[in-house]
Design a protein around this nucleic acid. Structure first.
Lengths: 131, 131
DNA sequence: CAATAAAACAGTAATAATTACTAGTTTGAA
DNA sequence: TTCAAACTAGTAATTATTACTGTTTTATTG
């Protein structure tokens, strides 16, 4: 891996990601950072997100809506994705949730996993009731 | 939902998906089907895959490689994705693997979930040893 | 401090998966 | 057989992401 040099854009990106729990996309982060760095480019956001992922500082969440989401918190937890509004919500992982079946370890060496629940969030449920 | 009419392309697509366990992408299915239906279009493949998903006949697997994979078998099972070769392999789900934490059900109503293990498959491991 | 090489940047162009559109074809019911 | 709705092939458009290029920033070394 190449040597790492300081970059205020990267710092700001990580700070922004760590300040929120809504799992933003690259584009959302781009627009937010443009408030402070009006000349930041989308390429810079993507490049640094990929770099921070490699470094293990952030995690990519592929939730099936065709856009990658990013999570600034890398401690073990799962996600709930609302199929109505698209929100990605943290779920505290309970220890027994993931006990890789022996079948899994027979196939290869497990390095990580992703558990995503899909459904309708409370807010969307309340909205449908009102109509 | 609109009324459903028969289509031999859709039938062939479903048959093809049910005949294999390698979780092909739309493009892979497209090229395979072109052997039998040389004029089938990629749009037809995508449209019918989306339709079959809605009908619950097939499942989409979003595994993080930027391309959607499709699974013709919808019974509960999980997947192992090799981060080296990209293969998506079935894993029999053991009952206790997924016990949604109470936290999850508090956030909304769970309709489905996706559990994907990432790592290196046996074949890729053997290849690295040889070098 | 000045020189310098590597890393990072902004801005733009290119790529690639997917979706949308259109005019013609197939299906299935009356 | 008629006819409307569903479906298709082929193509164009969209969109997230990556690649490229010339410039700027970082940080090391003399």
């Amino acid at each position: 891996m190449a040597e790492l040099k300081y970059s205020r854009q990267r710092e700001a990106l990580l700070k922004e990601l760590r300040s929120r729990h809504d799992h933003p996309t690259a584009d959302v982060l781009y627009h937010k950072l443009r408030e402070e760095y009006p000349r930041i480019s989308l390429g810079t956001v993507y490049r640094n997100l990929a770099l921070l992922c490699e470094l293990g500082e952030v995690k990519k969440i592929t939730c099936g809506d065709g856009i990658e989401h990013y999570d600034g918190f890398v401690s073990m937890h799962d996600h709930f994705v609302c199929t109505r509004c698209g929100r990605v919500i943290d779920i505290v992982q309970t220890a027994q949730d993931i006990r890789p079946s022996s079948a899994a370890s027979e196939i290869g060496s497990i390095e990580s996993h992703s558990l995503i629940y899909y459904g309708m969030c409370k807010e969307c449920y309340n909205k449908t009731k009102k109509q």
